[in-house]
Amino acid sequence: MSASHHEEETHDMGLKVLSTSTIHPRVRTVQVSRPEAQDTTFLAATAKGLGVTLKHFARNLFLPMKKLAKRNAAGAPTDETWRNEIETVQYPEEKVTYPERFRGLHRLTLREDGNVRCVACMCCPTVCPAHCITIIPAETDDKGIEKKPAIFEIDELRCVVCGLCVEACPCDAIRMDTGMHARPVEDRADAIETRETMMGRGVRSIAVQGGEGPDWRAHGHEVTKTDVNR
C-alpha cells in the first residue's frame, strides 16, 4: 500500500493521525473528537426547550381562541398578537370551507322533465382508472334520446375521486360538485351509489347540448316547418 494512498484514506476519515505503526500502515493512532461538556449534560438545551414549550403552553392555555375564519384563512393571520396558536377545527360544530373545485360524491344531473341526463355513452367507465363505474344501458321510448342507463352504479370504495368521469362526460350528466364525503357504511355493498341515489342529489342541468340548448330538438322542429328549403 503506497504512502499517498494511506494519507488519502486517513484524510477521508476526517481524523487527525497522531502516529502510524511501523509494522503495518493501517495500524495507527488517531485523535477522535469527543462531544463538548455542554452537549453531554443537556441542561442548557433542556432549559431552552422547556422555555419554548412553556411559552406555547401558557399562550394556548390563557389566551382566547382564534376565530375559525382566521384558522381557515391561508397565509399568515394579520392581527393575531393576543390570540392563541391552536389550529384545531372542532369538526362537527366547525367546518372548514372547501375549495370551489372540491370533488365530492357523484351526482347525476337531470333533464327538464326530470329524467336522467345520462345517455349511457360509456365514456366514464371507459376513462375511469379504478373501474368503479358500472352502466347497463337500455333503450328508451324517446326517439330523440334513444339510450339511457338502466343501471348506473358507482362503487365509492373503489373511486379514487380523480374526476376524470366528469371530464369525459359529453352530456354534463355526471358531476362531483355535491361537496359531500363518501358516507361511512357498515357493509361494502352499501358504499355502491345507485342511479336513484345519485339522481336524488341531482340538479337540472342547463348545459348546452348539440350547441343549441337542451331543447334543441323540439326547437329545431318548429323552425323546420317554416324552413324555406322545405
Partner: peptide
C-alpha cells in the same frame, strides 16, 4: 366546429 347556423334537417330515428 360546425359552421352551420340554420337548424338541421331532422328525419326519423329508430
Amino acid at each position: 366546429d360546425s359552421r352551420v347556423d340554420v337548424p338541421k334537417v331532422h328525419k326519423d330515428k329508430a
